[in-house]
Design a protein around this nucleic acid. Sequence first.
DNA 1: TTGTAGGCGTTATCAG
DNA 2: CTGATAACGCCTACAA
Lengths: 340, 340
Amino acid sequence: MKVTIKDVARMAGVSVATVSRVFNDSGPVNEETRRRIREVASELRYVPNDAARSLITRRTSTFGVLLPDMYGEFFSEVIRGIDHMVQQNDYHLLVSSSHNDRSEIEAALRAMRGRVDGMIVMSPDIDAQALGANLPEGLPVVLLNCAGAGAGFDSLNIDNYGGAYAMAEHLIGRGHRRIAMITGEERNHDARERLRGYRAALAQAGIARDERWEVPGDFTEFSGYDAVARLLAVTPRPTAIFAGNDSMAIGALSALREAGVRVPEDMAVAGFDDIPIARYMSPPLSSVHVAIDELGALATETLLQAVARKGQHEPRQRTLPTTLVVRSSCGGGGGSRALM
Amino acid sequence: MKVTIKDVARMAGVSVATVSRVFNDSGPVNEETRRRIREVASELRYVPNDAARSLITRRTSTFGVLLPDMYGEFFSEVIRGIDHMVQQNDYHLLVSSSHNDRSEIEAALRAMRGRVDGMIVMSPDIDAQALGANLPEGLPVVLLNCAGAGAGFDSLNIDNYGGAYAMAEHLIGRGHRRIAMITGEERNHDARERLRGYRAALAQAGIARDERWEVPGDFTEFSGYDAVARLLAVTPRPTAIFAGNDSMAIGALSALREAGVRVPEDMAVAGFDDIPIARYMSPPLSSVHVAIDELGALATETLLQAVARKGQHEPRQRTLPTTLVVRSSCGGGGGSRALM
DNA sequence: TTGTAGGCGTTATCAG
DNA sequence: CTGATAACGCCTACAA
């Protein structure tokens, strides 16, 4: 038998209204009465029923998070950042992951309808417009690393273009002219932007683009491993490989080692994301650092603000800066900087 | 203005009861009526209000997951396994992560009260008894990698002892006599069991235990990196390092490389968990494979069954087997097995 | 096969 | 300061 607000009211000799006021800090309550109610409540181990509460309140104190089908550390870091901020604000987190195609995403969105006060959608593969159709009118949403910014949603993006540009520029600065890139999938927004940054840097340096240098990958370690074989077959051979993310860079390092190609002497390698293990690679992996957990925290903050304003605000687009982290895999850093 | 069951009823010219029957497959409804109601409902974009529903149903269709403060791939793999199974059964997932000490865990448990139909608790640091006190009476719970099995909860554990024993035995079989272990934290159940397995294998082989070989870590890459310095100072120097998890093994590999110690020629290295990147390490890392996503899926299945039986069943404890994966970091596998 | 009506546990709006 | 009481949206006997 569940203990309800009525039980507390009866035991404390007051009305349910007063008990409610105590638990919500709404309206004035005599200090002594308040104390007694608290006492009775905790004795009875009373816990307000959230369903009933949100039925009338029209709030769930829950945020939804939609995650793409991506493996690895990036994923957990984002959640960590989100969850931390969410807990601080007494919200809850409804998570749905592993979504590949559009229909899956749409189904997941619909499944969350009515259960959340706002959503963080992380789905580099899909455009913003498509999402709007499946979301309840007026539900606050923050887009994380999505294409289609400016579609009326708050959005948060990594500076993919700038980060990739900076890394390519760094490699050029170290004397490389034949710089290859292992790209992500075409439909992935992050991947496209990184490719764009890479191309821009090469163009800026007056290096003619060579299509053989752009090898497709899919952000998995294996695709990075796999890409190396094709790259080594190109003549003249590239002297540097810039992978679209760290996972592929790690796969590439593995393949290069097996092929007997020394890094960085014979081939410079760089990644993107700077996941925690990057610095422990052999050799330590140069990368473009992204404050992943901060990304999650920032998204949550944005959502909280949107909820507070009841969605009545101009959607804002923000871009999170990246920083170049030079380690020895591209010959730029000393071994001592490996643990930096 | 939200559209409710009443609106649908009115538009379809029936009572709310009939609409309810259609949406719940409860009671008989004329086929034609059913069709009309479905049509009207989808036209109005009607979505049942979950709060109202669960207020009367006393079900939330939601499971809670409590995760420890652990980084890396292990985390995301588990969630993936859980989420997949949860979605298949039309449940939702409430996630709470980053919990270190007992008070944080207890707070998180309380926060979920009333919002979930069952919980998956993953908390190698804490004992089962402590959890029971903060959970509503009769709420189905599955313990994942927790100590205190047999405390009246369903529980699922990795075969930490067996896996560690097998790996140590393998190293011994390859002729190693001075085998060091980088352990996890004492309070961590997985860590304790793995240490126990390691010790048992050594004892079985008649190798006297040397305390200097057991260096404490905390499952982070850095702690593995850090441990190597101490291990290299031991005379005579150990010839093999068994890390309590892959993260520490990766840190150790990094430190060994910096120290100019060749792996596996001068030092064999092995880890535990077989996270996806293990095979891409340099050299590819031997490890104890655990089907992490399967662990999550299995936990969810157990929970679903418990919910179906309304918790009226004998708690069952299961142990997930592990398999030895020999790669070249311990000299056992050829380079060609790296992608195995 | 369908409709009526009571109630799930809270909050919010009024009076007192 | 406190107490009735009407919603909130839905499910479910019980009747028809």
